[in-house]
């Protein structure tokens, strides 16, 4: 959670310093800039110190938090050798990874 906040803050400050007076585009809808729509693209742009990519990285880290929580419960059920629940947890985790990666 702190990493998410840190990324968003860093990107946000960078963005506001560079574009404080710029107009924000909020309507009509145009899909976000292509690299900001995949994990690899966000990492590449962030390496180039792109402000929007750092903010987006913070957003993605926040999305990973529920995933981490599912992973924690998965480990909990594995320790107890509760295989039905390990299977259910894997199903949930798989769906989450599918949503984000595919």
């Amino acid at each position: 959670m702190l990493a998410s906040i840190a990324c968003v803050l860093f990107g946000g400050v960078l963005y506001l310093v560079r574009h404080a007076g710029a107009r924000v585009h909020v309507a009509p809808f145009e899909p976000a800039h292509e690299p900001l729509r995949s994990l690899g693209g966000i990492a590449r742009e962030a390496a180039r110190l792109d402000a929007a990519a750092w903010m987006q990285a913070g957003v993605v880290l926040l999305i990973l938090m529920p995933m981490a929580r599912v992973l924690t419960t998965l480990v909990f059920f594995m320790r107890r050798r509760d295989w039905v629940f390990v299977g259910l947890g894997l199903l949930v985790l798989g769906a989450l990874i599918f949503g984000l990666a595919v």
Binding site: G11, Y15, V24, H25, A32, R37, A52, A53, M55, Q56
Partner: peptide, 8 residues
């Protein structure tokens, strides 16, 4: 492309 970092 519906997650716009400037808004999110």
């Amino acid at each position: 492309g519906q997650i716009e970092p400037r808004i999110c």
